[in-house]
Design a protein around this nucleic acid. Structure first.
Lengths: 126, 126
DNA sequence: CAAACCTTGACACACCTTTGGTAAGGTTTG
DNA sequence: CAAACCTTACCAAAGGTGTGTCAAGGTTTG
């Protein structure tokens, strides 16, 4: 059987033991534990650790980025909130494709409009 | 017409002018420009700025988080890479629901297995 | 049982992010 | 035309992230 301790896993994956604990701490890769609480790295975890490094290097990401992507995937409410904001790209009404999306947008705007926007000063508009 | 300059927009939204520029810099909200290059904040941008603040406050996010979510949405390759990694959760084969997903997993593993994992030492497996 | 592991927690440092200034220079407008 | 804007480009401080190291204590194993 191939079950490695944290130091062994560190050597084969290129991460430091410290980082292996950190990666677990931020929720990315949780190694199962032995009865005494030792982390046990099996092939699955090792594979994951290697591909994680690839992902970070090739895409120039940080661990925090991947951790956030994981949160987005796990927390429905969070993903919904972020997606809702991102989907409402700031286009002028003319540019907006009419239809369901527009209605939904308007409803959202109405819902969120708590403080009115008093028009203040005028300016040459491009 | 209601088109505000950056300082006016800052006042009505609660952001500082500095942050409005920063928010634009990281790609979250780009205000259109006047012919002289002045940023022009219309109702759409103001709304977006307010909801952005709500999103951050209510979810405890940082601007970087939202910026990353935006990258995920815009860059197909990035999203694909991150999703692929996240979808490969570290389950043991026994736990894996057999079927298409498993086959795809195995193919991916094969694809990514460049460096073999030489089993080193044994350990009590839980 | 002692050496060589493992665990968590703390201190520490380098770097990046977030945010505020301030300066040099163009624009708008009373 | 001068005051009050705007722009970009820097310097800087506060806080977060990534990483190392060390300490105190439990575990495995020759």
């Amino acid at each position: 059987m191939d079950a490695l301790t944290i130091n062994e896993a560190a050597e084969t994956t290129g991460w430091s033991p410290r980082m292996l604990r950190y990666i677990e701490r931020i929720g990315l890769i949780e190694a199962p534990r032995s009865s005494a609480g030792y982390r046990i790295y099996g092939p699955a975890e090792l594979q994951r650790l290697r591909t994680l490094r690839e992902l970070l290097d090739e895409r120039g990401l940080g661990l925090g980025d991947v951790a956030f992507a994981l949160r987005l995937r796990r927390e429905d409410a969070l993903r919904g909130a972020v997606d809702a904001w991102l989907e409402a790209e700031p286009r002028r009404p003319e540019t907006v494709p009419a239809g369901d999306w527009l209605r939904w947008e308007q409803e959202k705007h109405a819902r969120l409009l708590s403080a009115a926007t008093p028009p203040t000063r005028t300016m040459e508009t491009a």
